[in-house]
Simulated scan of single mutants.
Amino acid sequence: MSKRQVRKMLREMASGEPVQLTVSAQSWKRLARLAFIAQQFGYEYADLQLGTNNNFVLFIVPDPSRQGQERAAQNRAQYPDADEGVALPPFVPDAIDLLKARMVVDSNSRPIDKLQMAIALFFFTVSAATICLTLRENTVAVVIVGIVWVAFLALMPVLRAYGRRYSAKYAARLQAAGFTPVTDRSGRQRYVPPGGQLPGHTHPLAGGA
């Protein structure tokens, strides 16, 4: 999380409309801190999805709750230059950890279907075959490409299983904190805060953006 990202986000939030941010790949904690800042100024975390080129797409929406509006008014008065990166509300570790858990689960809640796996396998196989044909006079290179191809096939199910276990760990963390599992409009399993519902549930960004 950089000051530039914070400034960009807060200035877009001034519109009062849902905000979609493309954020370069970085640590979960930094992404959670960015969403935490949004929550201090009248917005709430809605979703995090994997984008292209190793990017994430962060969705935040206006928080209509009385508590959220009161918190925003207090922080705007106390930190009037926040959108310039001058001073920001202090981070709350427990809140950051919960946001991180939600992001991990959300970003992994859209499973790779069989068609996507088949497409990835097809393109990787074609690439490997093309390299082998190009280097067919180099037996060592062809063998290496073959080994890489086999390793790719073996790793696909392993990576999927690891991703499921990783998400399950954070899903358990959310449930322990009182979050409730729900299914959104796109069929993804999400987690809602205690006594709440999916953030921004009345807006198209929620549950399927």
Rank of each mutant, 00 (worst) to 15 (best):
A168T: 10
I119D: 08
D81R: 07
A209W: 10
F123V: 15
E137F: 04
V92P: 01
A82P: 06
W149V: 09
L115E: 13
S127A: 12
S107H: 06
P199N: 03
Q189G: 00
A82N: 03
A35V: 02
P157S: 05
Q20C: 12
Q26G: 11
I144C: 04
A128R: 04
Q67M: 12
A118F: 06
N55V: 03
N75K: 02
R66V: 08
P89E: 02
L205A: 10
S27R: 05
Q74R: 05
T139V: 13
S24L: 06
S65L: 09
R164S: 08
A120N: 03
Q189N: 09
D106N: 12
A14T: 02
Q5E: 15
P181K: 12
A46E: 13
P194E: 09
D184M: 10
I144V: 15
N75A: 01
M13D: 12
F152H: 10
P62R: 04
Y45E: 14
N75M: 02
Q39V: 09
P90G: 05
A171L: 04
L10K: 03
A87F: 04
C132K: 10
A141D: 05
A172Q: 13
T180S: 06
T202R: 11
G163K: 10
M9N: 12
R33W: 08
Y79W: 07
P193A: 14
R190Q: 07
A209R: 07
P204T: 11
M117Q: 14
N53Q: 10
F123E: 14
F152E: 04
R136S: 13
M13T: 11
V57T: 10
A171Q: 12
R190V: 09
D97G: 04
K169V: 14
V192R: 02
Q189M: 11
V192N: 01
M13S: 11
P157R: 02
G195S: 04
L135D: 09
V150I: 15
G207M: 08
G16D: 02
K169Q: 15
P193D: 10
V23N: 05
A209K: 08
Q26F: 01
R136A: 08
A38V: 06
L205Q: 08
V148E: 02
Q26M: 08
L48V: 00
P157G: 09
A171F: 00
I37N: 04
V57I: 15
Q39E: 15
R33K: 11
Y170P: 02
P90H: 00
M13Q: 14
R173L: 10
Q69F: 00
V192L: 01
G208A: 13
E137Q: 04
L50K: 10
V126I: 13
I37Q: 02
